[in-house]
Design a protein around this nucleic acid. Structure first.
Lengths: 232, 232
DNA sequence: ACCTGAACACCGTTCAAGT
DNA sequence: ACCTGAACACCGTTCAAGT
């Protein structure tokens, strides 16, 4: 299809007096989907070196492309960050959905979702921070990247709403307002994830796990149907 | 005491060909406590214009001081931000303590603490974000500013621990491990505050208040002493 | 001790020009 | 349509020099 490999084969044989990196860009275009490649490179950089290491120069260099090539695909840097955040929410959504479906029963599936959520945050702390730091005051819903981020966030949230809905219908938990119940649980788990990321819980992993167990305990008691009879 | 006003009275009468701001610094020193003034100016700028508006040039200009004067009092910019965050935790601690003491009873005092927490976050969203964004991976406890930030955070947390301790002793809530119980509640309230700040809850304030009421409800049920007898 | 101002390396962004 | 490379305004930081 696309003759990618041939153009990649270009090698720079020109020697310049000033010390330069070995390879020099030979004025070539990028292959197929530069937009996609830019997002992936940005995610990699953020995961590996943190947000502060994400410069347009770095991401351009990683792809062998000019640092201004990005402006053909994104309004600006914050727009790229919005796309990165959206990508994060899509990954998180997939993780949550998998955990829920693997159940095997609603209760353990729900606990699996909680574990998957915290694991995502701990595994990708910088990415996770970008996901929630991007909801800036200057967020504009009219821009496509921002709208996409909004959608991706809502879709991830919806997995939790659906799981709660099913448990409500099965009579496993209180039939409170779905979105309020979901928002509260999301907030609690998000708060725990942030504490874990910010190493406020200390180096001992047992502290974090104890907190997670306690959270499950309290939340279960809190949203359990009140007059179950068995526990009294 | 300090003859500040006389030196301030200096006016620049030199006219330069290039367009300059009206007043030019007359090479004067800052009054008394520049360190204190730098923190206060930084807090003001962050509260009013957000973190991204906080440049060393801006904070220097606001105080009529060179933009490098700061390096006599802080290691670098992130050190100033740590001091700003510590200041935030001290304010928050005072707000929480006041709410708790105003009670009048433990239960309503505790709910007042929750309201005070969320109100602080909503009133100072940028400052609040700095407080929790500063716990960076590159945080060094050996630096005085970072250690101070750590202390200020722990002191604020301690107000919650003390309040829970008193309620445990009074038999009002379950006698779980104090620090785990406190960490979970802090995480939940922190998560709600973040959702509110990030306008994920939408423009309608009723949504946020409904979430707060629901949180109090669930948390109360969740940490209530199990066999109270009355509710069954 | 405390602060200045010039200099440096680096950043995001714009824009005329190239293919 | 897509990308380059020079230029611009701005940033944090360093450092010799001033008082």
């Amino acid at each position: 299809m696309l003759t990618v490999s041939t153009s990649v084969a270009y090698a720079c044989l020109m020697s310049t007096p000033s010390p330069r990196p070995a390879r020099k860009r030979a004025g070539r275009y990028h292959h197929g989907d530069l937009r996609r490649a830019l997002i992936d490179a940005a995610v990699r950089t953020i995961d590996r070196q943190g947000v502060q290491a994400l410069t347009l120069r770095a991401v351009g260099d990683a792809l062998g492309v000019s640092r201004t090539a990005l402006y053909r695909h994104f309004r600006d840097k914050s727009s790229l960050l919005a796309a990165v955040a959206a990508e994060g929410f899509r990954s998180l959504r997939a993780d949550l959905a998998t955990a829920w479906e693997q159940g095997p029963d609603p209760r353990s599936g729900f606990m699996g979702m909680g574990r998957a959520y915290v694991r995502f945050a701990i595994t990708h702390p910088s990415h996770y921070r970008v996901m929630f730091g991007s909801f800036r005051p200057d967020m504009r819903a009219d821009e496509p990247c921002e709208a996409d981020l909004n959608d991706a966030g809502l879709n991830a949230f919806q997995v939790l709403v659906d799981a709660l809905d099913e448990q409500q219908r099965a009579g496993l938990i209180r039939r409170d307002d779905l979105r309020t119940q979901a928002a509260f649980i999301w907030a609690s788990v998000h708060g725990i994830a942030m504490l874990a990321i910010d190493r406020q819980l200390g180096p001992d992993p047992e502290v974090g796990e104890a907190l997670a167990r306690y959270a499950v305990d309290v939340l279960s008691s809190g949203i359990a149907v009140p007059a179950s009879g068995a526990s009294c």
